[in-house]
Design a protein around this nucleic acid. Structure first.
Lengths: 196, 196
DNA sequence: ACAAAAAATGAACAGTGTTCAATTTTTTTC
DNA sequence: GAAAAAAATTGAACACTGTTCATTTTTTGT
C-alpha cells in the first residue's frame, strides 16, 4: 500500500478518536485497532506516538490559521476583534484538539519542534502584528513586537486554562467574553502607552 | 508508625524528586524506593497518585500565597506590580512545581477539586481584587470581578505556557518582562475603561 | 502473653510506548 | 512467468505505568 495513503488513513482515524473520545484514548493499540493497521505499521510511518500527536497538532493550528485568513475587514480594530472571536469559537468547537496542543510535551531528549510547526504559529502572530501596525502607527517596532507576543500568549494562555478545565470550575466567566474583554482592555492600554 | 509521619515523609520525598528530576519521575515505584515505604503504603495513605499530586500542587499554591502575603505597600498600584514580580519569580524558581499545577488533569470520573484546593486559589484572587478596589474605586463590582479574573487567568496562562516550554522556543521575551508588561498595559486599559 | 484489629507489603493485573525477529508483500531480474 | 532480492507489515515481547488485594507484619487492648 502507498505510504501516503496509510499515513492519511491513520491521521484521519486518529482525528476521529480525538474528536469523539479525547486524546487520552489515542493510544498506539487503539489506533491500530480502529485503523486496521498493526502497531508496528504506526511506528514505521510516524516513528513514535509523539510524532503522531505533533502532526495532529499541526493540523489543528493549520485549521485555525485558515479561519484567520478568512477574516477580512479594512478596520484593523475590527479585524483584531474578529480574530479574538474566531479564536474563541475555534477553541470551543475544537476543545479536544486544542487541549492537545497544550498538553503535549516533547520529551527532554528531543526538545525541538519542527520548523513547519513553528512557522505555522509565527505566521498567525504576524497576522496580528500587521493589524497592530495599522492600529498603532506610533508604536515602535520592537515595542510592537513585544505587545503582540504578550497578547498572543495571553490569548493562548486563557484558552489553555479554559480548555484544560483545571480552572473552569472556579472561573465561570466564559471563553469569548474573556477573550473580548482581554483584547479590549489590552488595546486600550496600548493606545495610551503608544504615545509614551 | 504514625499516619501523619508517613504522609509527611512521602510528601517530602516526593517534593525532592519533583524538584530535582521533574514530575515525570514521580512514579509510585520510584517514590516507594526513594522513601523506603512500599507501593501499597503509598496507596493506603493517598488512595491514588492523582491525590498525591493534588496535595503537592496545593503546597505549591500555598507557598505562592504566602509570598503574596509578604507584599505590603500602601500604594495599590505598587502592590499589584509587586504581585506580578513575586509571581514571575516564584514561577521561575519553582519551575518543576509550577509545571505540575497546570499539567495535572483529573480523570473524567472524579472531576472535582477539593474545597481547600479551590479556596487556596480564590484567596489569592481576592488579594488582587482588594488592590483593584483601591486602585479603581469607580469600577463597578461585577466589572471589577471580571477584570481581576481575566488578569489572573492571563498571568496564569502566561506562566503556564512559559513553564511548559511549548512556546519558549518561539518567544524569547522573558517571564518577568511579560508579566510586568501585561500588568502595565492591562491596568492602563482598565484605568480608561473605568470611567465608561 | 495472647487475641483482635490495624497497617504494611509486594506480587499480580491491565494498561502504556516501543522494539525487532519473523513473516508477508512487492519489486526486480532473468 | 518464475525465482531472487528488497521492502513493508506484523505482533509477540520488553520495560515501564497506576492500581489492587490476599498475605504478612505490627500495633493495640485486655
Amino acid at each position: 500500500m502507498a505510504r501516503d495513503y496509510i499515513q492519511e488513513n491513520l491521521v484521519n482515524t486518529g482525528r476521529t478518536i480525538i474528536k469523539e473520545k479525547g486524546v487520552e484514548f489515542l493510544t498506539a493499540r487503539k489506533l491500530s485497532e480502529a485503523s486496521g493497521y498493526s502497531v508496528g505499521t504506526i511506528y514505521n510511518q510516524f516513528g513514535n506516538m509523539d510524532n503522531f500527536i505533533l502532526i495532529q497538532n499541526y493540523l489543528t493550528l493549520d485549521s485555525l490559521y485558515h479561519r484567520f485568513l478568512k477574516v477580512k475587514t479594512d478596520s484593523a480594530y475590527e479585524r483584531l476583534n474578529m480574530y479574538a472571536s474566531v479564536f474563541a469559537e475555534f477553541v470551543m468547537e475544537n476543545r479536544n484538539f486544542w487541549f492537545m496542543v497544550f498538553n503535549f510535551h516533547l520529551k527532554q531528549s528531543e526538545r525541538t519542534f519542527s520548523i513547519t510547526y513553528l512557522r505555522r504559529i509565527s505566521t498567525m502572530v504576524m497576522l496580528i502584528e500587521k493589524s497592530f501596525k495599522e492600529l498603532y502607527p506610533l508604536l515602535k517596532p520592537d515595542k510592537r513586537h513585544v505587545s503582540v507576543q504578550v497578547l498572543w500568549i495571553c490569548l493562548f494562555g486563557v484558552s489553555s486554562l479554559l480548555t484544560t478545565s483545571s480552572l473552569e470550575s472556579y472561573s465561570k466567566v466564559e471563553q469569548t467574553k474573556i477573550c473580548k474583554f482581554l483584547l479590549n482592555t489590552y488595546l486600550t492600554g496600548i493606545k495610551v502607552l503608544e504615545k509614551i
